Amino acid sequence: MGMYYQQPYRNVTEKKSSRTVTVTGEQTIDARPDMAVAQIGAVTSDKELTEAQRMNTEISSAILNSFKQNEIAEKDIQTSTYQIYPQYDYQDGKQLFKGYEVRQVFSVNIRNIEKIGEIIDDAVQSGANIIERVQFAIAEPGIFYQQALTEAYADAFEKAQVLAASSGMTLSPAPLEINEDTSIPMIPAPGKAFVLAAESTAPVQPGEIGITARLTVKYKLMP
């Protein structure tokens, strides 16, 4: 008697590979800054620490008064640095005590951007001898970012359409995946690390800030 063997039944479902295309869209909107952040302060030195501190306090008070005269609100002024350093000279390989240096720096938000040069000059006339940097910013960058984001997506969609057409496929308009990568840089103004005097209004140019939106978008391709 012969034996009959039957293969077990298998339910096989054929899966078609899903074709996709991934593209990157990017757009930068150039906007003019409407505020600035400046680091302004004073450094004083004396053989006696108490005298170095007294001189620094006197000059710093005058600087703060100049800010007030220029209608800068107290909430926009913050002490960012207060440091005391012993000073030494070196002669014939020996360390000789020279005195103390006191450094106090204020971080100032300047919301009237047209007065930046005047504010710096007034501070210098009041005794400031440190202008560490001036950075420009936009108080409400979200408005410009939303515009950049919209245009970045349009850029990505246009690229995907070109690639789909080139491959003989049709692009599904609904994205499968969107990944967002943003960058909002601040452009520093050319400044002086150490200012001794100012005879006229300092020429400070804010330029423009580029607000960039980047998107990586995945779309489905259809026959």
Rank of each mutant, 00 (worst) to 15 (best):
I110R: 07
Q91Y: 10
K94S: 11
K68L: 01
K68Q: 13
K75S: 13
Y82R: 06
K94Q: 15
V108E: 11
Q91A: 08
K75R: 12
V102Q: 03
E74G: 02
E101K: 06
D89S: 11
V102C: 13
E101N: 02
L64N: 15
R111K: 15
T79M: 09
A52R: 00
T81V: 13
V43H: 05
K98A: 12
S61C: 03
Q78L: 03
I113G: 04
K47D: 00
Q53D: 05
K75G: 07
K68S: 10
N70I: 03
V108M: 06
I84V: 15
N109M: 09
N56G: 00
V108S: 10
E58T: 15
R103I: 08
K94N: 14
V43M: 11
L49N: 01
V108L: 06
S45V: 11
K75Y: 10
A73C: 04
E101L: 08
R103H: 01
I59A: 00
N56Y: 01
K115N: 15
G99H: 01
D89A: 08
T50C: 04
T44W: 03
S60I: 12
E58R: 14
S60P: 00
N65F: 00
R103M: 04
S80D: 13
G93N: 05
S66K: 15
Q91P: 03
I72Y: 11
L64C: 07
K115R: 15
Y82F: 15
I84M: 12
V105M: 12
Q95P: 00
V102P: 01
Y82L: 11
Q78S: 09
I113D: 03
F97M: 08
M55Q: 14
E48F: 10
N56L: 07
G99D: 02
N112E: 15
D46M: 14
E114D: 15
G99A: 07
I116W: 04
P86G: 07
A52F: 02
N112S: 12
V102D: 02
S60R: 00
K68M: 02
Q78D: 10
Q104Y: 01
L64P: 04
Y90M: 06
T81I: 12
I72P: 14
Y90V: 10
S61A: 14
F67T: 09
Q69I: 06
K47W: 03
F106P: 07
T79Q: 13
D76R: 02
T79R: 06
Y82Q: 07
G93Y: 01
Y82G: 03
I84N: 01
D76K: 05
V102H: 04
Q78W: 02
V105H: 00
F97L: 13
E48V: 11
D76G: 00
A73L: 09
V105N: 02
N56C: 08
Q95N: 10
N70D: 10
T81D: 02
Q91D: 07
N70S: 05
E58Y: 09
F106N: 12
